[in-house]
């Protein structure tokens, strides 16, 4: 655990809200270019955990422990310092792409926003880069689509925009909070393929949060299972499928098997 270690190093992360402990002593690490899945039922604290990695936990949450990115401690940084990390070094993709896009701004402006902030681009240059970014995430007719508003896009297109925003400044780490949960199954597969390809191309690290083991199996092999804010099991997807020890993990495996069986 040397301070120079490249990648993300989370140790002893604990979060209290209103005197109640919601995340308890969570530790994991993701080296540069690697991927990790955080899996658990709803309410297990997985979304809150990754939000707190970049200081976005709710105002009444008390966060303790250590989060290091390439050796730099993020817990306790000022809001101004954190703002320079967010979007530039760490990109985030949200669960509900419609809710995560400002209804009043065009797609181009939203993809361009982190570029203007972190790379100091002019409005025109940012828009140009946004068109390129839209093409890269496979949006049809990028020049036209960047002039549209979020409500004019389909669910899958919106999530491609969400990915384009998160990747705009080429961050070294991407945090994805159930990015395919709000999408239909066909779109899910396409978005997961896109994720795979882009994360590979950039050599970025990825923390992927989900409650669906079948989805996770397509993205990564390393898994941490969360339950009631604690890491109850860790290992590889294969290992967990062969023999899960914790009852929560067994439940997730059974659920994944049932969906796969129904699908085939």
């Amino acid at each position: 655990m040397s301070p120079e270690a490249a990648g993300l190093e989370v140790s002893g992360l604990s979060i209290d809200i209103g005197g109640r402990r919601v995340v308890d002593d969570l530790s994991f690490s993701v080296a540069t270019g690697e991927r990790l899945g955080l899996i658990g039922e709803s309410g297990s604290g997985k979304s809150l955990s990754i939000l707190s990695l970049v200081g976005l936990a709710p105002a009444d949450a008390v966060v303790a422990g250590s989060v290091r990115l390439d050796g730099r401690e993020l817990v306790g940084l000022s809001e101004r310092e954190l703002a320079r990390v967010r979007g530039r070094q760490i990109g985030m993709v949200f669960q509900d792409p419609l809710a995560a896009l400002n209804p009043l701004h065009t797609i181009g402006r939203q993809i361009g926003e982190p570029l203007r902030l972190h790379e100091g681009l002019s409005r025109r240059d940012a828009l140009e880069r946004a068109v390129d970014a839209a093409a890269e995430v496979g949006l049809p007719d990028p020049a036209q689509i960047t002039r549209l508003y979020p409500h004019q896009l389909s669910g899958g297109q919106r999530q491609r925009v969400g990915i384009a925003i998160a990747l705009a400044c080429r961050p070294a780490l991407i945090l994805a909070d159930e990015p395919t949960t709000a999408l239909d199954v066909t779109t899910q597969a396409a978005i997961l393929d896109l994720f795979q390809r882009l994360v590979d191309e950039r050599g970025a690290s990825l923390v992927f949060v989900t409650h669906d083991l079948a989805v996770l199996a397509r993205i990564t092999s390393d898994v941490v299972v969360l339950s009631h804010g604690r890491a109850v099991e860790r290992g590889t997807v294969d290992g967990i499928l062969r023999g899960a020890e914790h009852p929560v993990t067994q439940g997730l495996v059974a659920a994944a098997r049932a969906t796969t069986w129904r699908a085939s």
């Binding site: 703002a83 320079r84 967010r86 979007g87 985030m92 809710a99 896009l101 926003e113 902030l117 972190h118």
Partner: peptide, 15 residues
């Protein structure tokens, strides 16, 4: 409290 405000902060937008 909307997601798009959270997402804007996650992109590095200041207060």
């Amino acid at each position: 409290r909307t997601d798009y405000v959270l997402a804007a902060r996650a992109s590095g937008v200041g207060s």
